[in-house]
Design a protein around this nucleic acid. Structure first.
Lengths: 250, 250
DNA sequence: CCGAGGAAGTGGTCCTTACCGGACCGCTCC
DNA sequence: GGAGCGGTCCGGTAAGGACCACTTCCTCGG
């Protein structure tokens, strides 16, 4: 019988092992579960030194795990007091996801009606956004997006044909982002967008079923794969079925 | 004369000292300048071990500095190859700033009309957001915000009186965030907000000069200082004078 | 000439130790 | 009872060492 103190972690069966996945990753999962399932929002976590003893890891590992959770918004560090469970569960909707992925993540069934799929002359602002000469030919795609069969948004998008040749030949009722990655090797990894509140244009109002002039969230987005501007899109979202949620810092 | 090797950093006059500001912070500034001013996007940074020698710090410090820059999108780490300057400069416009600060940053002159400043009973959702019992007394502040003398937004905010006693006695035409930090020691460092598109309520429409029902951006925000929920606010922004811009990743 | 093998270099992970300043609790002294 | 003072606990910072997986490049043998 050694006198080695049995850690609470071992007792709880949540010990950390030396598998391929890094210890700080394992610990992050454990702490997240602890914070979300056993503690109340606002409650204090065990101190970093306690955690290193409990799980038999160094403080660096503890700080790496907690640091990520803080960064993700699950925890809040307060110097000289402790680390606390953040009040609201994080569901940072401010991520780069396609409509398809986003709706699936929220538990809805996405579907799509293709309204326009054609080669067309780029509007002026689109040409500029995609870095093309004015009047260049681009792929124009206009789609109505639905969740659980109900209209949520109208997407009007233009693609640089150089980076997505033959885009019109593929199935456009699914995720174009996924197709861009799979067929053309351009994984969209970054986008710049602005959001405004607008009265729905007539065609959009009709498609969304809100009527003309109803307030909608209007996105103007340029999507990039690395340094390449791939897509310029304008989207109108029904305000009663979609809102942006975000966590802001500093 | 000791044989201590003269670091290249000292030779370049960019040495790191033991001032109040942390070394990893100083190093972050140095590396950022190096990446943005002396290197091209895509270029490789000196290795972490080289940097620790150059600036006379430990690898932990180097990794902390680089880690932040990676997190902010300035650099990209590639295992076994090196750390590289990211392609595009980051300028996430999605920051946590008070109306005052934000307008000043955009080159406008902010002003404020206080519409309501009173102690009141917390609405249900506000009490929940601030973690108070239903029916608790809170400080209610409603203000019209202007830029260059033109109405931009209406802010309706509730404050936990425990964290901001005497808030009603101070000058409310300036930045409340600044006052909260200076008077009550609660620096707002985090907020969670959702954004919708709404038709302006009658009072808001009148104040903004848009008329009732005009599309406005409606924010619902809870602001935190560490783990403490300090403020719950609802704001309506004129869509023709304000839009959200953001850079999204991954 | 060319391919295999190894050495060197890189970021990734992890450990121990140490000190700092702020917050907090309980004690003593006035 | 109130003010002042340590001791203790907290996260923040920092050093220095170690091993790993992987890439890159150079050398040596075929």
């Amino acid at each position: 019988m050694s006198a080695t103190p049995r850690s609470t972690a071992e007792a709880a069966g949540t010990a950390i092992n030396n598998s391929q996945i890094p210890k700080h990753e394992q610990l992050r999962t454990i702490i997240l579960k602890l914070a979300r399932e056993e503690l109340e929002p606002g409650a204090r976590l065990p101190s970093e030194r306690t955690l290193m003893d409990s799980y038999g890891v160094s403080r660096i590992t503890v700080r790496a795990a907690i640091g990520r959770l803080v960064n993700e918004g699950h925890l809040v560090r307060v110097p000289a007091k402790g680390t606390f469970v953040a009040d609201s569960p994080v569901q940072s909707t401010l991520h780069l996801a396609s409509f398809t992925q986003e709706m699936e993540a929220m538990g809805h069934v996405p579907s799509t009606v293709v309204l326009v799929a054609e080669a067309a002359t780029a509007p002026e602002d689109t040409a500029e956004a995609l870095g093309l000469a004015p009047g260049s030919e681009v792929v124009h795609l206009k789609r109505l997006r639905l969740a659980d069969g109900r209209p949520v948004s109208v997407d009007d998008a233009w693609y640089n044909p150089e980076h997505a040749p033959g885009l019109l030949e593929i199935d456009l009722t699914g995720s174009v982002y996924k197709a861009l990655a799979a067929q053309f090797g351009h994984q969209i990894d970054r986008a710049r967008q602005s959001v405004r509140s607008e009265g729905a244009p007539a065609d959009v109002g009709a498609l969304l079923g809100t009527g003309t002039g109803a307030p909608v969230l209007a996105f103007d987005r340029v999507s990039y794969s690395g340094p390449l501007a791939i897509e310029h899109s304008r989207s109108w979202y029904r305000s009663d079925r979609y809102s942006l949620t975000m966590e802001v810092r500093l």
